[in-house]
Design a protein around this nucleic acid. Structure first.
Lengths: 195, 195
DNA sequence: TGTTCTAAACAACAGATGTTGTGTAGTTTA
DNA sequence: TAAACTACACAACATCTGTTGTTTAGAACA
């Protein structure tokens, strides 16, 4: 399921234990939800001693943060968004990716909680911002890449969250939604002038 | 310091205890920082029993959320931003307000923590979004107020946060910063078309 | 293969959270 | 003004977190 991160030589026990923790966490999350899962729950499921958990992660929040980061990065890599340049088509794919990711995160972790959602948010926004900034810097335009990437990544996330919380029967598909908001985002990516 | 919220008839003990909690919290926060302050600390400072705290707030996070909400609302009301209409001038004032609020929050609560910052963020964004939506709905244009307010409030917060974390010697003042990002935000508030 | 190093198990502890039932005190009502 | 209602104090409890020192077991090294 979750592949190991570090390709360099690592003590096999460390890799094994870390993998046990991550796998146990991903199994238990849909059952219990993030808020009510405890470190004790996770370590029981993983079959390791609770004190060992703290050698790998400072707390369950760090574990969630790491898991989200890894999963979202996989979604980006799967679509090769990290290896392409800025275009409206790629921006649309990015927005759809975020839609799908947020929807999946919320439906596989019931009941959701504020802390869960804010960690998902922080992680996804961070990666969005990094990616958009790289895209813009490759583009050789005179836009302030950092400012543009910040405004756009935050706006994307805000809009996606609103879309994902939409209980309306007429809620558009992720594709249609992305088409609708694309102009709004694209203009941010063009308008930020260097100070 | 903190005024009571409920103007309707409320048991004086409830008001008194609540006020003790809020005041104690605001006193202890700059000393200890949010992360290391405990409910026990707060109730000791307030001179009430710990179990009583839970009759008023489910946890310290809810207490922080409530405090931020109230303080930010006061900042909005102080500048009468809740009683005016949308204009570039008022939008600029709003951005400056957020800058000042975020700067003050971060400097009066050292060491800051992720959870503190994400609660400040959630609360400020929420109020920003509400206010911008009201402004746009009053404006009688054909823009999708909700979408525009979402994109803009998130972009404002993202940009302000980046500004507030800027360690650069040449960091612009809040006023100058607001001038710089105003075009970026303003265009969001004009571009969201009804679906 | 034996030695050294490192990760994990284990038990125990202190501190904090969240809850509960009972008694006390303050407020409201008739 | 007494009775009824409600908020708070209090003590106790279970659960969880984070930490620590010691022992055991696995991995790396010579």
């Amino acid at each position: 399921m979750l592949s190991t991160l570090q390709d360099e030589k690592q003590d096999p026990r460390v890799k094994r234990t870390r993998s046990l923790i991550l796998n146990a966490f991903m199994e238990i999350l849909p059952e219990k939800g993030f808020q009510s899962v405890s470190v004790q729950d996770i370590t029981e499921k993983a079959g390791i001693n609770r004190a060992t958990f703290y050698a790998h992660f400072p707390d369950k929040y760090a574990l969630l943060d790491h898991s989200i980061s890894q999963m979202f990065r996989q979604e980006i890599e799967k679509r090769m968004l990290d290896a392409c340049h800025y275009s409206d088509e790629n921006l649309k794919t990015l927005i759809v990716t975020v839609c799908e990711f947020v929807s999946n995160a919320n439906s596989h972790c019931k009941p959701s909680s504020l802390q869960f959602e804010s960690l998902v948010e922080a992680q996804v926004k961070n990666q969005l911002q990094g990616l958009l900034q790289v895209w813009l810097e490759q583009d050789d335009s005179d836009v302030d890449a950092k400012t543009a990437a910040t405004a756009a990544s935050w706006a994307i996330y805000g809009l996606v969250l609103q879309w994902s919380h939409d209980k309306n029967k007429k809620k558009p598909s992720a594709e249609k939604f992305a088409d609708q908001v694309l102009p709004l985002i694209a203009v941010n990516l063009r308008l930020a002038q260097p100070a």
